[in-house]
């Protein structure tokens, strides 16, 4: 579905610019869950924004469904670190925003929006304003919004980065279950090694800036994932391996 070949992105002009990413090559097949893992500032968000059509690449080729990206691809869902909810709309209207923006199909999608909110355990907060919700609830609303139009491609930039550990674990479980049911393609940026292993079918590790792929790891864990999977031996092996990569980059020392 996604084909990146030597993709680079440079901000600013040649003299005093920043090369955020360089020579990124990877293929992502339909239905994969790929986590991008790497040190802060290595260009993970930049790569994701290129995929979303929010930034233009300055080198290489980046194709979605065989076509170069010009603007946001169709049936794209996106989740942000700060949930980007609209304070002036209630929960239901926030979830329905994609339907409204894609040509006034609000009424058509209202049952689905309510269904999604019910699955997220937010039935009682349909009419509430975002400001009255906790961080975890807000992020759930944002997830419902990104799922409303049944996206084929879901791009998530550290969506759970600002949450406490417990809420984060719960949302990880929920997201993984959703993905096993819907099997959309997900590209997920995170800082957390264990989150990446828990969620992904594949982990791509980036080097420090300019970011480039230093390892591409297939994660073979049982499809049905419970939090306890994190205490198993295979999980520990993946975790040690990825940590080893970070130590080799000189980013972690004991």
């Amino acid at each position: 579905m996604i084909a990146a070949k030597d993709v680079g992105k440079r901000f600013g002009d040649a003299a005093d610019g920043v090369t955020a990413i360089a020579n990124i090559s990877m293929n992502i097949a339909e239905g994969e869950f790929v986590s991008l893992l790497g040190p802060s500032g290595c260009g993970k968000s930049t790569f994701l924004r290129c995929l979303a059509g929010l930034e233009q690449t300055t080198g290489g080729t980046l194709l979605v469904d065989g076509k170069p990206i010009e603007g946001p691809p169709e049936r794209l869902g996106m989740a942000f670190q700060r949930d980007a909810l609209l304070d002036w709309m209630n929960v239901l209207d926030n979830v329905l925003l994609p339907a409204d923006f894609s040509g006034g199909r609000r009424r058509e999608f209202e049952p689905r929006a309510r269904e999604l909110l019910k699955m997220a355990g937010l039935s009682g907060f349909v009419q509430a304003y975002p400001r009255t919700l906790s961080g975890g609830m807000r992020q759930r609303v944002a997830m419902c919004r990104s799922l409303l139009l049944e996206p084929r491609l879901l791009l998530m930039d550290e969506p759970f980065g600002a949450l406490d550990a417990l809420t984060r674990d719960q949302l990880n479980v929920d997201l993984h279950r959703l993905w096993t049911q819907l099997r959309m393609t997900v590209v997920f940026v995170t800082h957390s090694i264990s989150e990446a292993i828990f969620l992904s079918s594949r982990i791509v590790v980036f080097s420090p800036r300019p970011g480039t792929v230093i390892e591409d790891i297939q994660v073979e864990l049982p499809d049905e994932r419970r939090l306890a999977v994190r205490e198993t031996e295979p999980f520990g092996r993946y975790s040690r391996h990825v940590r080893g990569l970070f130590e080799n980059m000189g980013l972690l020392h004991d």
């Binding site: 946001p72 942000f80 980007a84 609209l86 304070d87 409204d100 923006f101």
Partner: peptide, 29 residues
């Protein structure tokens, strides 16, 4: 308007009219 929300509007491929009437004007209130 916060940059995140402008990005969101962009990925939703909303028309300028929708961005103005659903987002910008409310931010301006």
């Amino acid at each position: 308007v916060p940059p995140d929300i402008l990005d969101l509007a962009h990925t939703l491929r909303g028309s300028r009219w929708k961005v103005l009437t659903r987002i910008k004007l409310f931010c301006a209130l």
